[in-house]
Design a protein around this nucleic acid. Structure first.
Lengths: 156, 156
DNA sequence: TTAAGTGCAAAAGCTTTGCGGGTAG
DNA sequence: CTACCCGCAAAGCTTTTGCACTTAA
């Protein structure tokens, strides 16, 4: 079990380049706003909500509106540049990682911690053809209590 | 790969009884509203939002308020009578099943389909002690496109 | 040039909260 | 009885939308 740390500068650059290429190939304008929002999601190792992204200093100082942040995050998901993360809370959360990895999900505070584990990655995906479901990827969620919440349970 | 169908009447009855017992042991009033909301979540094989539960005929005819539905669902989760389901959308969704099972998650329409699969159940949970994370259970999410959305992709 | 994107502000949708009356134990 | 719960209505968040202006290609 290893906790995942952030992307390298090189990887981030490659991801932004890939999105730029996607845009030009699909006739989608590669705007300043899209570049900044993508870069910021890649910078975060957390799993931010739209509003968290909106509040980031670089997003604020570029005067990007809240509506654009919401729209852009969805565009980035459609383009495959970022993903949406599954979680038990009531807000949409995004993830700069698009590769297979897994999550520790705290059932008390909704925090999400990325983990990587070869045994989990090697999971063989069952055949879902009978249900006509087309599986693109998978995630394993280990659900429980994070360090902070465990301590609060001990001394409530 | 088998799709899970609903709980039997017997199982539902047992689950309601277990909650009644939990209430009496913990000095929590077992109100009509709590019983009805629990029964209705157990009846559904879907993964309803609070508002979906609120809209059910039996909930409406019992004149249970929206606020009570929201509060009650959270109470039931705290009591371990139901669970919250992880998903990529922007609403909290609940699940009448508390046992280990897995989900097909549609990335386009956010629908969730329960599945059961022995290979997935047998997944060995990695050691998370180094992160001080206390794993209670796990879920495997197979992410992709459901039947309906696949068809819409073909003919957009 | 021009189709698409953006900012703004308002609307819409989801969830929580305060409070007076009601109810389970 | 009495603490806790419920319904109501209002407030507080989160997200989407319509429209006039701006911009990438």
């Amino acid at each position: 079990m290893k906790r995942i740390s952030g992307l390298t500068a090189q990887e981030k650059k490659r991801r932004v380049e890939a999105f730029r290429k996607y845009c030009s190939e699909n006739g989608i304008p590669f705007t300043v706003q899209r570049r900044i929002v993508l870069q910021e999601v890649l910078n975060l190792n957390t799993h931010p909500t739209a509003d968290t992204v909106y509040s980031l200093p670089s997003v604020r100082s570029a005067r990007i509106s809240r509506a654009t942040v919401y729209r852009t995050l969805e565009n980035l998901v459609q383009a495959g540049a970022i993903t949406k993360t599954c979680h038990p809370g009531g807000k949409v959360r995004y993830d700069g990682r698009t590769d297979i990895h897994h999550h520790l999900v705290c059932l008390r505070c909704d925090s999400i911690i990325d983990i990587t584990n070869k045994a989990l990655d090697a999971l063989s995906i069952p055949d879902t053809s009978a249900l006509d479901f087309d599986v693109k990827d998978f995630r394993v969620q280990l659900r429980g209590l994070c360090r902070r919440c465990r301590r609060m349970e001990d001394k409530p």
